[in-house]
Design a protein around this nucleic acid. Structure first.
Length: 466
RNA sequence: UCCAUCGUAGCUCAAUGGUAGAGCGCCCGGCUGUUAACCGGUGUGUUGCAGGUUCGAUCCCUGCCGAUGGAGCCA
């Protein structure tokens, strides 16, 4: 007998009349006193469960089938038939139901057949993928990840595996987690009494990466079109619904390219992955539209067919100043855009994603290219409604003398950046790239409020269970 | 890290300065090719932790821990 997935049964890949076996977990059981039970079996292969119809003729009907509760693991053998009931077109007329694993106490099984809050489900992160919502998120996450790789692969980009552990001091994107094998209780000391990291594993201080960008730039200046897609780590004490200590980031980098090329790439990229999501996970997206965020499907549909709005930072400030909106933080040229400003631009002024470009150099990183006049840099942020900044990118400073001046004015030691500077000494070219927080993209696509619910096992301050 | 709110049954919540109740879930019964089923019934709690005020605290106060939302930082 052929073992099939639930999705094969429901999509028609396995035809009515076929003798098949389905294995999965019980969602619900409903009994009819006429002597049949309806057991919904879910195996995660798609959003919907398969209804198995069990008659009292089954050998274990009284002894086992009538005791099935949510979460029990079963193997069901039978015939795929057209359903006599509403709600599904196909069901499995069972000839045998084998209980593979019981739930030992249905009353305290954490995933009861009722609504649960996402906050509660976080406390049972090992079982929450069995719920509709978390299962759908897992499939959406996979779909988007596959689309990311497909997009770049189809365009001739190479996936570069940049390091997780870095001894580079120069990433400068936030607080870092230390990586060390020294004895914390009794570390070796230098003569000045400081911890002697020369005796540590790497012979120097090491941390978990906060970004693969500087490394991927090196490969960009050899392979032309590259990207990273992997975990990154921030030890910032951020307690918000948009931050994690461990998250996945996508960072493409393109050579012989301008900021304009960068924005064009970002737009094509986001549209591609969201198009894929709409095409491939309609079942899960319909669920999100129904139970999580009514707008999520229509928002994505609009997203994929509307050109990004573009405006310079200076223009954005001007529009903010001219708006009648009252802001907590007063608007003036030179300040960083606050959450309220980003939201206003994306949600009220534009009503969709907007790329804001050419920010004041004082509020942006050293590696971003100085514009004419040197007041601004070739940076861009893509702001999306409900999320704020979803992408941050820039054209990189490819002129060694200008880069050195910026390092100097920021008090950053040139020697720490020796290899990064080498890239400007040997065959430098204009290049650009951006970073996308993968979880932010999932939040935007599904409307799930808290970022801790779009990653399987979230890591945040005081939260590393499971 | 800052501000606000919150922490009571398996889950979601209510309640009063005099030791707690509902809905859902579980279980039992009824009914039904059922499908967030429906109808009826039973049980359930050291009211986050540690102190303090009080004759008496779940309710008031202090500290701690944790959660949620917002801010900052950022992706």
């Amino acid at each position: 007998m052929q073992r099939i997935r639930v999705v094969d049964a429901l999509s028609g890949k396995s035809e009515v009349g076929a003798e098949v076996e389905v294995a999965g977990w019980v969602r619900t059981r409903r009994d009819s006193k006429a002597g049949i039970s309806f057991v919904h079996v879910h195996d995660g292969s798609c959003f919907a469960p398969l209804q198995a119809v069990a008659g009292q003729g089954l050998a274990n009907y009284e002894s086992e089938v009538l005791k099935l509760s949510a979460g029990c693991a079963v193997r069901v053998r039978g015939t795929l038939v057209a359903s006599q009931g509403k709600g599904q077109s196909v069901e499995l007329q069972a000839t045998a139901i084998e209980v593979v694993g019981w739930v030992d106490d249905p009353e305290t099984y954490p995933i009861q057949p009722k609504k649960h809050s996402l906050e509660y489900l976080r406390e049972v992160a090992h079982l929450r993928p069995r719920t509709n919502t978390l299962g759908a998120i897992a499939r959406v996450r996979h779909c988007l990840a596959q689309a990311v790789h497909r997009f770049f692969h189809e365009r001739g980009f190479f996936w570069i595996h940049t390091p997780i552990i870095t001894a580079s001091d120069c990433e400068g994107a936030g607080e870092m987690f230390r990586v060390s094998t020294l004895d914390l209780a009794n570390p070796p000391r230098t003569q000045e009494g400081k911890i002697d990291f020369s005796q540590d594993f790497f012979g120097r201080e090491a941390h978990l990466t906060v970004s693969g960008q500087l490394n991927v730039e090196a490969y960009c200046l050899a392979l032309s079109q590259v990207y990273t897609f992997g975990p990154t780590f921030r030890a910032e004490n951020s307690n918000t619904r948009r931050h994690l200590a461990e998250f996945w980031m996508i960072e493409p980098e393109i050579a012989f390219a301008s900021l304009d090329d960068d924005i064009t790439l970002a737009e094509a990229f986001l549209k591609y992955i969201f198009r894929a999501l709409l095409d491939e996970r309609a079942d899960d997206m319909a669920f999100f539209a129904q139970h999580v965020d009514k707008e999520c499907v229509s928002r994505l549909e609009r997203f994929v067919q509307t050109p990004f709005a573009r405006m310079t930072y200076t223009e954005a400030i001007d529009r903010l100043e001219k708006s009648k909106e009252r802001f907590e933080f007063p608007v003036r040229w030179g300040m960083d855009l606050q959450s309220e400003h980003e939201r206003f631009l994306a949600e009220k002024l534009v009503g969709g994603p907007v790329a804001v470009t050419n920010y004041p150099r004082e509020i942006k990183a050293f590696y971003m290219r100085l514009d004419e006049g040197e007041r601004t840099v070739s940076a861009m942020d893509v702001l999306a409604p409900g999320i704020g900044e979803i992408i941050g990118g820039s054209q990189r400073e490819e002129r060694l003398d200008v880069l050195d001046r910026r390092l100097e004015s920021l008090g950053l030691p040139k020697e720490d950046y020796w290899w990064y500077r080498d890239l400007r000494r040997y065959g430098t070219v204009p290049h650009a790239g951006f970073g996308l927080g993968f979880e932010r993209a999932i939040q935007y696509a599904t409307g799930v409020d808290n970022i801790r619910d779009v990653i399987p096992f979230p890591r945040a301050p005081r939260q590393a269970d499971f």
